[in-house]
């Protein structure tokens, strides 16, 4: 078990190194100049800036310096927010994205399993049809539309009530999080519902369910002990990457609801060619994803004894 995870972690480190290198060279290969602004600079001012950011050195040595810094956990200083270290940006804004993301995953996970199980139980009857219709909507309507519509509805509700029922944006209390988290988790919830439904239907037609029925077990027990537990495995598999995806993919929701999460910095850095922030956030998110995948494998073993890694 231990050697297995040591191996996994070593492989994970190699993956992160690969992500870092690919991002570094990819970023430098993209046309465009990170120092360029609206107004042209004199050659001297440009040279001063290049020296400041170490861009005057050959690419090879920039790469080595950069790898060394990452190894020490230092991502450098942002190009666009010149007074802020990338480490500070991640430290201050990731917890916000993560809080929102975890809440969204809770919504998505609970909702997905519940709706999925329901649709499977009521297969081809009206609850199934209604929920599956909503699922298709949830998957196909992009989050910026959902975000805008829900904010617009909240404004209407607040105006009608003459008071603030729920804040329409900003950050600070748990009330600020509810609607954005729902919006953020919606497409994952829809996806999980579909996955759970098909997985449940597959399990229903297996021999062990037939055996359980033949033994005369009560339906609730078959459902919770045999059907649900077996059907939930594929959901757990996608949950890991989904957590990483949701905590990093909140860009649109963060902009619409004025939430100071890391997703904004991640996307804007690419638009602005902010080299250090691109590198910092990508490597950080890459490492986070690798970690989540390893974690999911661990949880997998807890749920399903067959895949438990030998001790």
């Amino acid at each position: 078990m231990l050697t297995y995870f040591a191996k996994r972690i070593a492989l994970g480190l190699v993956t992160i190194w690969f992500i870092a290198s690919a991002t570094f060279f990819g970023m430098h290969a993209v046309p465009g100049d990170p120092l360029a602004g609206d107004k042209a600079m004199t050659a001297q001012i440009r040279a001063n800036l290049e020296a400041k950011y170490g861009l005057d050195k050959p690419l090879g040595s920039q790469y080595l310096i950069y790898l060394g810094n990452i190894a020490r956990g230092d991502f450098g200083i942002s190009y666009t927010q010149e007074n802020r270290r990338v480490n500070d940006i991640i430290r201050e804004h990731f917890p916000i994205s993560a809080t929102l993301g975890i809440l969204a995953i809770v919504f998505a996970g609970l909702g997905g399993v519940l709706w999925g199980a329901l649709t499977a139980l009521y297969r081809n009857r009206w609850p199934d049809v209604v929920i599956m219709f909503l699922v298709i909507l949830g998957i196909s309507v992009p989050s910026f539309v959902v975000a805008a519509i829900s904010q617009w509805s909240l404004v209407g509700a607040n105006l009608a009530a003459g008071t603030t029922i729920l804040p329409i944006g900003g950050w600070g209390t748990v009330w600020h999080m509810l609607v954005p988290a729902l919006v953020l988790g919606l497409s994952t919830m829809a996806y999980l519902t579909r996955l759970m439904r098909s997985s449940m239907l597959e399990v229903v037609s297996t021999d062990y369910i037939r055996t359980a029925k033949a033994k005369g077990l009560p339906a609730t027990q078959i459902f919770s002990r045999h059907q649900l537990r077996n059907a939930i495995l594929p959901v757990v598999t996608v949950l890991g990457p989904a957590i990483a995806g949701i905590t990093t993919g909140g860009f649109v929701v963060e902009i619409v609801f004025a939430i100071p999460g890391l997703g904004r910095y991640f996307v804007q850095a690419i638009q602005q060619l902010d080299y250090t922030v691109i590198m910092g956030t990508t490597v950080f998110y890459g490492a986070f994803l690798v970690f989540m995948v390893i974690l999911v494998d661990l949880v997998y073993g807890l749920i399903d004894p067959r895949v438990r890694v030998e001790k």
């Binding site: 904010q151 944006g169 900003g170 902009i255 619409v256 609801f257 004025a258």
Partner: peptide
Amino acid sequence: YITSDATA
């Protein structure tokens, strides 16, 4: 609030 979204 800090956001670039005009509708927000």
